[in-house]
Design a binder for these strands. Structure first.
Lengths: 342, 342
DNA sequence: TTGTATGCGTTATCAG
DNA sequence: CTGATAACGCATACAA
C-alpha cells in the first residue's frame, strides 16, 4: 500500500508503550482505559497523561479479540437503498439512533440489502462482527430474519411480522390508535366520505393503521371500505389518490398512512384543481419534514421516529449490558399535529 | 449477556476446528479460506467441505489483528443526518457505493457527524478501524478533514475544498460545464431573463455550476447577476425563488443547482399561479427522483451519482490493492435530460 | 491496588 | 505444497 504522506509512518502506540511511558504495567493501563474503579487516583492521572502524550488509541481488533465484544452494532435494513433513503421516517429514525450512539463508544454498521442474496447480511451479523443489531422496515416474508435468532441481541423498529421462536424486543408506536386518532379528527370536522391511502399490506404497521381507521368510522356509522394500499412512496400516494378519486369522486377526506404518500396525493389533487382542505381534507402520518414541504401544512399523526431510533439503541444497550428484565415491547406515544390540511 | 435463544450457545467453530475436521493444519485451512493458489486441489475440496459442514465463518477481529487489515471502509459524511438523508443525491451515491461494495468482502461503516465534536470520527478513521474512507459533502472550513491525511487512503466525492498537503483522490462531475449546459439550453429556447438558485457558496461544486451559468450568459451577452445561494434543500429552494421573484418579477427562466431546490422553487411558483414552463422555464441539476416527483417533469442536468459512488469505491479498492498510478481526478460525464419544465 | 501470565483466532514466516 | 510457530494488541483470572 502506498504511503500517502510525507512523514514516516509512525507505529501506532500500544498499551505496552503507554505502560512503559507511565511506568506501570499493561494491565493497569488497560484498567484506566476501561474506566476500572480499582486504580489509584494518582496512577490514573499519570496514565492518562501518557495516553494523551502518545496519542494512544485502543486497537479495536485486539480489544475485540480479547473480549469477544466488537463495540459495533448493525443497522439492518431489508430494503432497497433508494427506499431507505427516500423515506424521511428512516432519516429521523437513523438520526435518533446515531445521536444516541454518539454518546457511546459503539459505532454503526449500515447493512442495507433487500433480498440478502447469499445471506451476506445474515452471515455478517452471525459472524460475530457486531454485538447486536437493530432491524427496521421488515416485511412479512422476510423469513431470513429468523436466521438471526440466537446470534446476538436484536431490537426491531416496529413489531416484527415474521414468526419468531421467542419474544422479540421491539420499539413501536401504537399504530392502531394513530389511525384512529387521525380518522376521528376528520369525522369531528364534519367529513363523512372518508378514504384511506394505506401502506403495504404486508406490514403490520400499515395494517394496524387501517384497523384504527376502520374502528373510528364504524363507531361513527360511516362506510369504512374506501382503502387503497400503496408502498409508502410519494408517487405511490399520487397513484392511490387517482385510483380513489376514480372510484369515488365525491370523497371529502383522506387518511394517508404516511406523509410522503400524502404529498403525492396533494400533487395529484392540485393537478385536478381540487382544493385542500376546502374540497378534500387530508391527514398524514409521521410528522416528517415532508409534512411542511408544500404550501399547505399537513395535519398529521406525529410519530416520534427520532425517539424510536434512540429508544431502540437504549434497549439494545441494556440488552448488551446484561440488564435484567428489559421490556420487550417499547411503545412510544403518538400525537395529532394539526396544521392546515384538515 | 443473557442468552436469547433456547438452544445452548454453541461455540463458533474456529480454524482449528476446521483443520481437525479436515485432517490438515490450521495454516492450510487459512490458505484455503484466503484462496491461496498453493494448495493441492483435493485438499482444497476436503477443507471446503469441512468449512461448509461446520458452518465456519472467519473471525474478523482475529483476522484483522493478525493482518492489520479490517476489511471495512468508512463513509464519512460531515453533515447533519437529516441533510444526508434528505438529499436524493446521497441516496444514489450511497446506493452505487453499496452495490459496488456488495461484490467485495468489505463492509461499510457509516459515520455521519456534522461537527465531529471530540474528533470522534477522525479518531475512528485514524484509529485503524477502517482500511480506507470515502468522504462526501465536505465544505470549505472542514479543516478537520486534514487530520485524516496520512492515515488511510481517502477518496473524496467531489473535489475537496480544504487545502490538503498532497493531491487528493476524488471523483467528480464537471460542474462548470453542467451549469453551462443547463443555462445554454435556456438561452437557446429563447429565454433572456435568467436567474440561478445556486448551492451553498462554501462548496466548490456549487460555485463551479455558477461559473458555468455565468459563462453561458456572458457568451450570449445577457445579464449574469441574478443569483441567490441556498442550501440544497427544497425549502431553501422555495425561499430563494421568492427572493428572486421579489427582486426581479419579470424572470423567465431559472437554473437551479439541484433538483431538490427546484422542487421547492416549483411549489413557490405554483402558489403564485406562475406556470412552468409557460411563464418561467426551469432547469434542475442531479436528475434525482425528485425530478419526476411533481406534475411537471423537471428538465435537469444528469449527474450520474450512482456511478460516482461506485467509482469512488473502485478508486479506493485500487488504492487498497496497491495498484500503481491510480488517477487522482476521476471525472464522470454530465448530460442534459430534457423533460417538460424547460 | 497492582503486576504476571495466558489466551482470543488469524496471518505470516519459517522450515521441511 | 504443507506444517510448526511466532506475532498481532488487548482483557482478565489469578497472584502478590
Amino acid at each position: 500500500m502506498p504511503t500517502i504522506t510525507g512523514h514516516p509512518e509512525r507505529h501506532a502506540p500500544t498499551l505496552e508503550a503507554v505502560a512503559e511511558a507511565a511506568g506501570v504495567s499493561r494491565a493497569t493501563v488497560s484498567r484506566v482505559v476501561n474506566g476500572s474503579p480499582s486504580v489509584r487516583g494518582e496512577v490514573v492521572e499519570v496514565v492518562q497523561k501518557a495516553i494523551a502524550e502518545l496519542g494512544y488509541v485502543p486497537n479495536r481488533a485486539a480489544r475485540s479479540l480479547a473480549s469477544s465484544r466488537t463495540h459495533s452494532i448493525a443497522l439492518l435494513v431489508p430494503e432497497d437503498v433508494s427506499r431507505f433513503f427516500g423515506d424521511p421516517y428512516f432519516a429521523s429514525f437513523t438520526g435518533g439512533l446515531d445521536r444516541r450512539l454518539a454518546d457511546t463508544e459503539y459505532v454503526l454498521n449500515l447493512v442495507v440489502a433487500r433480498d440478502d442474496p447469499g445471506r451476506k447480511a445474515v452471515r455478517y451479523v452471525r459472524g460475530g462482527n457486531v454485538d447486536g443489531a437493530i432491524v427496521v422496515s421488515h416485511h412479512r416474508g422476510h423469513d431470513f430474519l429468523r436466521q438471526l435468532e440466537g446470534s446476538v441481541p436484536i431490537v426491531y423498529g416496529g413489531r416484527p411480522d415474521v414468526a419468531l421462536s421467542s419474544a422479540p424486543y421491539f420499539v413501536d408506536v401504537d399504530n392502531e390508535s394513530g389511525g384512529y386518532l387521525a380518522t376521528r379528527h376528520l369525522i369531528e370536522s364534519g367529513r363523512t366520505r372518508i378514504a384511506s391511502i394505506a401502506g403495504p399490506d404486508d406490514m403490520s404497521a400499515a395494517l394496524d393503521r387501517v384497523a384504527g381507521f376502520r374502528r373510528a368510522l364504524q363507531e361513527a356509522g360511516l362506510p369504512d371500505d374506501a382503502i387503497v394500499h400503496a408502498n409508502f412512496t410519494a408517487s405511490g400516494g399520487a397513484e392511490a389518490m387517482r385510483t380513489l378519486l376514480a372510484r369515488q369522486p365525491d370523497l371529502d377526506a383522506i387518511f394517508s398512512a404516511s406523509d410522503l404518500m400524502a404529498t403525492g396525493a396533494l400533487t395529484a389533487l392540485a393537478s385536478r384543481g381540487i382544493s385542500v382542505p376546502g374540497d378534500i381534507a387530508i391527514v398524514g402520518y409521521d410528522d416528517s419534514p415532508a409534512a411542511t414541504w408544500g404550501e399547505v401544512g399537513l395535519t398529521t399523526v406525529r410519530q416520534p421516529s427520532e425517539l424510536m431510533g434512540a429508544t431502540a439503541v437504549d434497549v439494545l444497550l441494556q440488552l448488551l449490558g446484561g440488564v435484567a428484565d428489559v421490556p420487550h415491547e417499547n411503545i412510544v406515544p403518538t400525537e395529532l399535529v394539526i396544521r392546515n390540511s384538515a
